[in-house]
């Protein structure tokens, strides 16, 4: 996952791009078999133990999901964590610096 976070007039603006196929479960592969649904269900961000973002996603979100949001009460140089989980229980969680 790629994340850009920068402070603008007191708010931290976050742009994030997650690598994920986001299979809808309706697509068929080459020999006509249904490819099982495989999509991110939740995305969370925390800063100093506060949840500063929570999104619920589903199969209608595009492949390699892009999200943007903003939150208050953080300064450039702070670290914050972004995590996601998908319907198969796979997940990713990383820390990022605020520019």
């Amino acid at each position: 996952m790629k994340v850009k976070a920068s402070v603008r007039d007191g708010m931290v603006l976050v742009k994030m791009l997650m690598k994920h196929p986001m299979e809808t479960g309706r697509r068929k592969d080459k020999n006509g078999e249904l490819i099982p649904g495989h999509y991110i269900t939740e995305v969370k961000a925390t800063h100093n133990d506060d949840i500063v973002f929570h999104g619920e996603l589903g199969p209608a979100v595009s492949k390699d999901p892009y999200l943007s949001f903003s939150f208050s009460g953080a300064n450039s140089g702070d670290m914050f964590t972004v995590s996601w989980v998908d319907n198969k229980g796979e997940s990713e969680s990383s820390e990022f610096a605020i520019r």
Binding site: I51, F53, E56, G58, A60, F69, F71, S72
Partner: peptide, 27 residues
């Protein structure tokens, strides 16, 4: 998305320090 097979695309639960200003890309 009204006519999508499953209409609900995404839901943002706004946290106390979070601005109600979000974007996403949908199918």
């Amino acid at each position: 998305v009204e006519k999508n097979p499953s209409p609900l695309a995404c839901k943002f639960n706004i946290q106390s320090r979070m601005a109600a200003d979000v974007s996403a890309r949908i199918r």
